[in-house]
Amino acid sequence: MSEKRATREAYGEALVELGHEYPNIVVLEADLAKSTTTVKFKKEFPERFFDCGVAEQNMMAIAAGLATTSKICYTGSFAMFATGRAFEQVRNTISYPKLNVNICPTHAGITVGADGASHQTVEDIALMRVIPGMTVIVPADFYEAKKAIKAAAEIDGPVFIRLGRAAVSTIFDDSYNFVPGRAIRLREGQNVSILATGIMVEAGLKSSEELARQGIKAEVINVSTIKPLDEKTIIASAEKTGKVVVAEEHSVIGGLGSAVAELLCEKHPVPIIKVGIKDQFGRSGEPAELLKYYGLTSEDISQAARKLTAL
């Protein structure tokens, strides 16, 4: 777990590989090719790369049109603008007709850092999750991101893959087999379940080690596909431990925490604590400072787990 790479770095790499495999893949960008790394695809396949300029809504609707001509579209830009600015294009023009557009924006979450609240999306999982038929994937590291981006080419209908700006520790390696819709257990435990997504998976693993030293055996599950949710794996874990901590770099409203709560309150009610951003906007700062300020560290997960196990 020593190597650190941003999940966004996987985007350009995966796109280049996809470009060789699929002649019908087209990449659209909205003036952020270097930041999102789609520039790598541009260099390799200039004839299949289109920069729409600063016009995210237009980019999404163009992608929808391209998809009707049997193209598989991947779009760029930041999560704020791809899911926020262009929400209705994604909802009405891509998702309602179930078109093959893979929305993989980067710079999601507060780890965007110094750019501040206007660029830190903490609502994007919620926005994409409420759209019928949208597949929502939040990779935990570079390798999972790369596999997910490549897998999206074979998923029918729209896919949202949330990518980050900051370098984060790798958890998997090239041999990892990503299966959309499957949550995977990374640590087994009986006392409490830690369901984590994105960069919080690493924090969840660290927390399980802290908890082990205190005699608490935590189960850590990487829920990278938030929709469709792996109900079986989540319910089974909740049945076993009876306590659930959910951790995500996102608002506690509408994200994985909400998805898990919605599922368990109907199928197997247990106490849940959501570790996430508490209905607030972000702010400028270094990623590590911000994670601490907003309560998104392994210690925050451990605290929640201790609280539940003390019940």
Binding site: A114, G116, H119, S284, G285
Partner: peptide
């Protein structure tokens, strides 16, 4: 500018 706790955010607030 752009530091934690500064009133000068990366973009105007």
């Amino acid at each position: 500018l752009r530091k934690m706790d500064s009133h000068l955010q990366g973009h105007p607030d």
